[in-house]
């Protein structure tokens, strides 16, 4: 934690974030902030611009304009400092399929300059918690998607980052596994890791402390789930989302 961040407890702060691909505006003046320890949901339909924004926050992609700080550092000039403090689980599955579970742990732990004893200790603890210690030497390719995703998450927080970015971590996973996955997220949040998560599932939105809903590159709503339901006079987050989408359609017609 450095000074700038200590002042207001904001670990992510974006002001007027814009990302253009040619003439196409993928992120249109996004302004939001995330508090330390929060679970922040990033919702939106396909192509809304969620991944684009997340990659900018992770220092994987340069923003076109805007003022953006992550973990107290500037994304334009201090992206390598940011990378030391964050974990990232990309939308595409990103473990090495031809390596075993343990080899993946060892590799990513090593890249984060963790001591080998520490890597081993944490890997064993995480695998034990997931109840899959016996899969330690199994090649990733032969594991079912649910377990892979849990492993990818474990490896994303192996080096105990301040913030973890999860891009649709539960895509294509059965409801039971999704539940378990969210328990892992809660555990990580309880241990002090700030969670920034994108999802399509509206029921998952209810699990977040605060959510932002993106439509066509813009943030259309940002609040706690309860407050959003009240504001939009909706029974569930699903209704909130549909109302927002409809409103957007009508605006376009005018």
């Amino acid at each position: 934690m450095n000074e700038a961040e200590e002042k207001n407890g904001k670990v992510i702060e974006a002001v007027e974030l814009v990302k253009r691909f040619g003439n196409f505006v993928a992120n249109d003046r996004l302004t939001f902030s995330v508090q330390r320890g929060e679970i922040f949901g990033f919702l939106g339909a396909n192509g809304a611009g969620k991944t684009t924004a997340m990659r900018i926050l992770c220092g994987l992609s340069k923003p076109t304009s805007g003022k953006i700080r992550v973990a107290g550092y500037d994304v334009y000039t201090q992206s390598e400092k940011i990378k030391q403090r964050i974990g990232y689980m990309s939308q595409r599955f990103s473990l090495y399929e031809d390596l075993t579970v343990w080899e993946n742990f060892r590799f990513f732990g090593g890249i984060y300059r963790m001591k080998s004893a520490l890597i081993r200790e944490r890997a064993d603890r995480m695998l034990g918690r997931l109840g899959i210690l016996e899969l330690r030497d199994t090649v990733i390719a032969s594991l079912p998607p649910g377990i892979r995703q849990k492993l990818a998450f474990s490896i994303a927080i192996l080096h105990e980052p301040e913030i973890v970015f999860l891009d649709e971590p539960t895509g294509g996973v059965d409801p039971v596994t999704r539940r378990q996955f969210w328990e892992m997220i809660y555990e990580a949040a309880a241990s002090g890791i700030t969670v920034f998560v994108t999802t399509h599932y509206m029921d998952e939105a209810e699990y977040c402390n605060r959510i932002s809903i993106m439509v066509d590159g813009k943030i259309e709503a940002l609040d706690t789930p309860e407050q959003l339901k009240k504001t939009y006079n909706a029974g569930s987050m699903n209704d909130v989302f549909l109302k927002l989408a409809r409103r957007n359609e009508e605006q376009k017609k005018e």
Binding site: E80, K81, K83, Y88, S90, R92, S94
Partner: peptide, 13 residues
Amino acid sequence: EIGTIEQINVTPI
């Protein structure tokens, strides 16, 4: 192509 490079690029390597 596989996308694993993203996972490396997001580290402080």
